[in-house]
Nucleic acid binder design. Structure first.
Length: 108
DNA sequence: GTGATGACGGAAT
DNA sequence: TATTCCGCCATCA
């Protein structure tokens, strides 16, 4: 996820596949929920397969914050709160095998 | 040990 | 395009 460039997004399922965990999209969400506030991981660049923001406990400002952070990166939401994946989806160059952890695994 | 739940995905309808 | 349904599995009560 740290490789996702500014202004681009990836879906939960996409991240799961890159992590060599095909079909385990829910675990990606589960992992994100465990991130601390000080995490340097760009969690706001991960959206669901419909291009929407997924937050169960969106009582707080988290959901709004994700949208604001993305809009600050020039990502546009439509009237239904969704973005065009065909336009903003990130297309990684290297296969999953080429991934290297730049933080020594401290975020996991 | 068991059942419910959840930052989801995808096929079927 | 929208809904419904089922698979997925780490956690937790």
């Amino acid at each position: 996820m740290a490789r996702i460039p500014r202004g681009r997004v990836a879906t939960y399922g996409q991240v799961a596949r890159l992590a060599n965990l095909p079909g385990q999209a829910r675990l990606v969400g589960y992992a994100l929920a465990a991130l601390g506030q000080g995490s340097r991981i760009p969690w706001h660049r991960v959206v669901n397969a419909r291009g929407g923001i997924s937050l169960r406990s969106d009582d707080g400002p988290a959901g709004i914050l994700q949208r604001l952070r993305l809009e600050r990166e020039k990502v546009v939401f439509d009237a239904e709160g969704r973005i065009r994946l065909e336009r903003y989806r990130w297309h990684p160059r290297l296969p999953a095998a080429g991934i290297r952890f730049a933080n020594g695994g401290r975020e996991s």
